[in-house]
């Protein structure tokens, strides 16, 4: 068994698949740099992220599994899961060895793991599309802080760009320390240093002095609406929490100062 250590990027993981064929490796354990712990029996093989190799592997996969298959691969990769990396690696090799049909074999453990991880990532993506709450700042920027379970910003980029085409906005992932910024024209990934502990924020609300004049009014109106659209006779807390697990409450204007 050989151990490949890659840099944690998609390019790196795909390069590892390339190298496995170049070295004619048999069983391989892949592990990302940040999770790698060298053991006594021998070091891992360091994989350089090589965009030319990665590109060949990606195109090869595309030919065999199609666009839908690639979406599954990409989403599962964004799951940032150690077992997920291994399954993606093994599944990629299986696709090259045995053909793309394998993507329909739900009896296969690797495929099942990858498709279930991809589903979790998609669910988180969908949650972010739903639970992002923008606050309007005095200079007209609509701002939101999030800390999603998986690295879903690349997946929500198009949705928000299409939808909010006539307002400037920023969605910042305080866990991964980067954001998406739309300037009224196009969306870019940005890295911003915030003073203060944004990563551990208990609520995602901004200080009042930077907010637009009418922001407070609309937050109050929304909270009022949220409470009045509820039917008390149908109260069902279990269902409520299943839909919005408590870890998301801090994003939500309507929940943020209620139960913290």
């Amino acid at each position: 068994m050989e151990t490949y250590v890659f840099d944690g990027s998609l390019t790196g993981l795909l390069s590892a698949v390339f190298i496995a064929y170049e070295r004619r490796s048999d069983a391989v354990k892949v592990v990302s740099q940040d999770r790698y712990q060298p053991d006594l029996l021998g070091g891992g093989i360091k994989i350089d992220a090589d965009s030319r190799q990665a590109d060949r592997v990606w195109k090869g996969l595309a030919k065999r599994v199609g666009a839908a298959g690639l979406n599954t691969f990409y989403a599962a990769f964004l799951g940032e899961d150690a077992q997920g990396y291994q399954s993606l690696f093994d599944l990629s090799r299986a696709v090259f060895d045995r053909g793309g049909d394998i993507m329909e074999d739900f009896g296969n453990v690797q495929l099942l793991f990858v498709s279930q991880l991809a589903r979790k990532v998609h669910r988180e993506k969908h949650r972010m599309e739903a639970f992002v709450r923008f606050q309007k700042t005095a200079d007209g920027l609509f701002t939101s802080f999030v800390a999603p379970d998986y690295n879903v910003l690349p997946l929500i980029r198009r949705h928000f760009t299409d939808r909010y085409a006539d307002q400037r906005w920023l969605i910042y992932d305080s866990k991964r320390k980067y954001g998406l910024y739309y300037d009224g024209d196009s969306t870019a990934e940005v890295e911003i240093e915030f003073s203060g502990p944004t990563g551990k924020m208990r609520t995602s609300s901004l200080p009042e002095n930077v907010l637009a004049e009418d922001e407070g009014l609309y937050q109050r109106l929304w909270k009022g609406y949220f409470n009045h659209t509820n039917i008390a006779a149908r109260k069902n807390t279990k269902l409520h929490i299943r839909h919005i697990p408590k870890r998301y409450w801090r994003y939500l204007t309507e929940k943020s100062d209620l139960h913290l």
Partner: peptide, 17 residues
């Protein structure tokens, strides 16, 4: 401003679920 999402989006849930 805005577009439609084919599958719809629930932005929040009331306490009745």
């Amino acid at each position: 401003l805005g577009n439609s999402h084919q599958s719809g989006i629930c932005h929040s849930y009331t306490e009745d679920g």
